[in-house]
Nucleic acid binder design. Structure first.
Lengths: 277, 277
DNA sequence: CGTCCTAACAGCGA
DNA sequence: CTCGCTGTTAGGAC
């Protein structure tokens, strides 16, 4: 469940089920995703109570009271699933938490992910989360803030958007439609963007991510209850639609290499040199 | 006098004239090229005696006894000139040293350069010189050492050769002929170089730099006595010979952009893809 | 024809 | 579709 919409939906669902419940037990099957020995994490978590559950960018923040926060990053896709009872849930997982009312949740990583426990008053010393830029849908993240963030920056706009230290929550799925929505080619140098393009990009970030959250996040990911998201294939504009017609102009969507990632673009609506073409 | 041959010639000439002489006075006209306040450098140098004068890469090492070393980098070209008497020498300079027998020298930078004074026992803490790779003509810098240096390195061979932390002394003048002499395109990835090419490159480094020193260094630079070097235009193979015929095959030499520097190459003798062309 | 610092970029490994 | 480390590359300042 990689990007901001999936994490936002998940945090809301988890909060509804888990908030206020004491932790009865913790099972660690993959110690290397932790930031401490398994016993230490189990001991610290046991008996404490689940508090607020929020998301920032692609990270989950699970308050564990008193005084701790569990930080979860699902890496390149993972299932984070609700368990209705101790006997419920998948057999294979890397991390499981059981609560004193019998409910709980499991985490199964596809590839790498993190489950880090830190003291809440030491959150700022957790580098992976403390260096995150503002969450892309944070109310404080205004158009003005976005303009400031781009000031004096070099490099390609797509790389900027994917860098979680600039802006947290956008990954290489939603970024395709975000750029398409603003008519911006992923390899456009930041310096070449007009004020109007920057404004359009900001609007597109909000529009795409909010639409996805509204529909329950991406169809190819599971929510807390194991159900696919309601933001379905036909709601994507260009992402993963190689060879299909652009919804605006009908041009065939192409897949291109952009650095180490791939990009789906409409070559007509997202020209690399807007003034010359 | 930017590169190794110029510095080697200069060091030898300076040593011949200055070695053993006490310093009578120092005049600083451009404090920002120093690593300390002018008064401090003047006070430290005055009364001391010039010792050994050597070069490493593009740096001059002037021993100032007891206990100090004057480190000089001439930047993008500069005149470092002998003065036969206190009234001799150019009117315009940034730094002047007068010795007790009336001789001396001046430094006039074209652009930026450095005159740094350090205690000899603290030379290792002078980052700009302590991080230099081996001087390209150092006897210890063997073919074996060159092979080791290239092991596992990525990037383009020209950038590697110009990086003073790998190998000290090669700049963007001699590098053209060095690469041509080995038949290697400046943008060849290091990893793509065959063992034979690496050996040829090592030989070319020595051959080109030693030939330049033998002739008294580049004609477009002045030596300690203000005379141009004897390594003249017709001794360059491809460097600065855009449009002229390659001395080996007659193909027209071309000037290409290689990152932030320019390169002169023979497109026939220095193919970018040796196996495919 | 110089050096440095910094940000951006690419590959690898977990 | 993750992250961080490392070495390389590119731009601007001096």
């Amino acid at each position: 469940m990689p990007e901001l919409p999936e994490l936002a939906v998940l945090a809301r669902q988890m909060a509804r089920e888990l908030r206020g419940k004491p932790i009865a037990g913790v099972d660690v099957r993959q110690p290397k995703c932790l930031n401490m020995p398994p016993e230490q994490m189990i001991n610290t978590l046991s008996g404490k109570r689940v508090g607020e559950i929020t998301s920032k960018g692609k990270w989950l923040f699970v308050s564990v009271e008193p005084g701790h926060t569990l930080l979860i990053n699902l890496g390149m896709g993972a299932d984070l699933l609700y368990c209705a009872s101790p006997s419920d849930g998948p057999d294979v997982y890397q991390f499981r938490v059981d609560l004193d009312d019998g409910t709980g949740f499991t985490i199964r990583f596809w590839w790498f992910g993190y489950v880090h426990l830190v003291r809440t008053d030491e959150l700022r010393s957790h580098a992976m989360t403390s260096t995150l830029g503002p969450s892309a849908l944070d109310p404080d993240f205004t158009l003005e803030a976005f303009r400031k963030l781009l000031e004096g920056r070099r490099g390609m706009i797509k790389a900027f958007l994917l860098n979680q230290r600039n802006l947290a929550g956008i990954g290489n799925a939603y970024v395709h439609d975000i750029l398409f929505g603003a008519g911006i080619h992923p390899q456009r140098p930041i310096q070449s963007l007009s004020a109007a393009e920057i404004d359009a990009l900001y609007a597109s970030v909000r529009r795409v991510l909010e639409a996805a959250i509204h529909s329950g996040a991406a169809y190819y990911e599971k929510d807390f209850y194991g159900r696919p998201g309601g933001y379905t294939e036909d709601q994507w504009a260009v992402g993963y639609r190689e060879g299909e017609p652009c919804p605006k102009c009908g041009t065939s969507i192409v897949k291109i290499k952009t650095g180490s990632t791939s990009s789906f673009i409409c070559p007509t609506c997202q020209p690399l040199n807007p003034h010359t073409s």
